[in-house]
Structures are given as C-alpha cells and as structure tokens.
C-alpha cells in the first residue's frame, strides 16, 4: 500500500489540506472518523480528522495546522511524496440524522472536518447554521465553502478584528432561535465555552475530544477522557462525546502532558532543516 499525496491545498498560513491515496480507507470512512499518520520509521503516530473523501478516486483528505515537530514535517511534504503509514478509519462515525435545526461550530483547523459534518447534516435534511471561529481572520478557513453548504454562517475572531468578537453573540442567537442539536469541533477551550452556552437551553451538544493518542484503537489508554465521571477512551468510545458531560479541564491538562518534550523535538527539528527534505538529517 502506498499512501501517496495526490493534492495539497494551503488553507491559510501554516495550515494545509492533503489529499492522500488510500482506497481501502476511502471505501469505509464516514464523517467524524479519523486516521493516524506516520511519516517515517522514526516518526510518531498522530491522529488527524478526515475532512473529505472520494470513494471513486480512492482518496481521503485531512487538514492540519503546523504546531509541532510532526505537523511541521508534514507541512514540508510535496505532491507525490509518500506517507510511511496511514491507519484508519478510526473512531466512531458521527451520528447524522434529520434533527431539524442544527448548529455547527468550528474553530481553527477543525473547521475543515466540521464542514464535512455540515454537508452530511444538510444532506440528511437539516437546516444548518454554521459558526466559524478563530484567533485571527486568517484562521477562518474555507469561508466560501461554509457559506455554500450552510443556511446561515456567522464568523468570529477572538479579538473581534473580523466578524464578531468572541462567542458572546451565540448567547443572543440562542435567546431567539431554537436548535435541536449542536456540533462543535475546535480547540478544547472553544468546545468547553460552547457547551457551557448551550447547556441552559438543553441543546444536545456533541464535541470532538482530541486527547493525546498513540495507537488509536484502544490499546494504550493514553486517550482517556472523563465523561460523566466515567473513564472512557477517546479513540474507541469517541472521539465524539456529550459536551455537557466531558471534563474539559482534565482534557486540556492531559493534552499538555508532554509539552516540554514536544518543544525539544520541535526545536531540534527546526535546527536541523536544511539537510534533506525530511529534516531529520543534517545537511
């Protein structure tokens, strides 16, 4: 099996979408599932959510933000390059049904996979309102696509330099409009905030937990997430959970467990690029 990169789209600075050949994954994947990417023999296994697929061409797409060693290394790859391994589809597919009115909230790079859900929700007959949020305007990815897929789109940035300022406007929306379901994909702080906002209105709110993972298939337990006081595994019980029941503070804390090591890894890599393309070997 060769996992060849067929196309690369730059969605924003340091944010890319790869279309990769993987017919057996494309044949099975559904919205909400993820893949695990391995770049090389020495590489780590990182989970990325599938944001598009083409069953006929046999490709799957994922989008990533260059935050650390592995995503930066991934960002250096070109069309035609090959990934060492791609495992998937992993995780449970999203529940897509005709709920009526659905609110979809996406933050930063997770906007890309959110739009796959928006599309599926639309196809299932829902009226879909989409909110895109990011730190700055650049992070509001795929705005045109969001507009073409949704009934209504709101944009927001953290400082209000573009669109609404923060998510306070959502409180106002909910005062006037009734939603039957809410789907949030984005940074944990965002998912936490949205879940807190929807809770008083009892809108079932589904979040995508992104704990650290290794195998992604239930073997290591590093991805454990506390939901309603119970220990669940992000990879096999999730990745989607009831946002009103997730312990977000613990999730953030567990995501940061290896921050010092990740920094070392990233710094070493940056120091070494300029050698071969993979950046692992010095010039």
């Amino acid at each position: 099996m060769t996992y060849k990169i067929m196309a690369i789209e730059e969605l924003a600075p340091k944010t890319k979408m790869f279309e990769v050949s993987a017919p057996h994954i494309a044949a099975k994947v559904e919205p909400g599932q993820f893949v695990i990417v391995i770049l090389s023999e020495e590489g780590e296994r990182i989970p990325l959510t599938i944001c598009d697929y083409d069953k006929e061409k046999g490709t799957v797409s994922f989008a990533f933000h260059e935050v650390g060693k592995t995503t930066k290394e991934l960002g250096k790859l070109q069309v035609g390059d090959v990934l060492a391994n791609l495992t998937g589809p992993l995780g449970n597919p999203s529940e897509i049904k005709n709920y009526g009115k659905v609110l979809c909230v996406g933050g930063s790079v997770m906007i890309a996979p959110l739009l796959l859900q928006v599309k599926a929700m639309k196809e299932a007959g829902n009226n879909v309102t989409t909110i895109l949020g990011a730190r700055i305007q650049d992070g509001l990815l795929m705005r045109e696509k969001a507009k073409s897929l949704s009934d209504k789109v709101y944009l927001a940035t953290d400082d209000g330099s573009f669109g609404y300022k923060g998510l306070d406007f959502l409180v106002e929306i909910l005062k006037n409009e009734k939603f039957d379901r809410c789907v949030v994909m984005g940074p944990v702080v965002m998912m936490k905030e949205v879940s807190e906002i929807t809770k008083p209105y009892a809108i079932p709110t589904i979040v995508t937990a992104t704990p650290i993972m290794i195998d992604g298939m239930g073997m290591c337990g590093v991805c454990r997430v506390t939901v309603s006081g119970k220990m669940l595994f992000g990879c096999v019980d999730g990745p989607e959970f009831d946002g009103h029941k997730v312990d977000f503070d613990e999730l953030v804390q567990r995501q940061r467990l290896f921050l010092p090591e990740e920094r070392v890894s990233s710094l070493l890599w940056e120091k070494n690029i300029g050698g071969c393309k993979c950046g692992r070997h010095k010039a």
Binding site: E42, G43, E44, I214, C220, M231, Q253, R254, E261, E262
Partner: peptide, 29 residues
C-alpha cells in the same frame, strides 16, 4: 488520570513499538 500514570501497555508501546527510549532520535516522547 494524572500525568505520569501509564497503563503497562502505554508504557510498553511507547518504548518498544515507538522506541521512546531513544527520544528525540525517535519522535515519540
């Protein structure tokens, strides 16, 4: 769920499968 608490499998997978004992030569910490 505190940091520093590993299942045996996590510890062994990091070390044996992902070669974390050789970090940062290998990427998994």
């Amino acid at each position: 769920n505190l940091g520093g608490i590993y299942s045996a499998n996590e510890f062994l997978i990091r070390n044996n499968l992902m070669k974390a004992f050789d970090f940062p030569e290998y990427d998994t910490p």
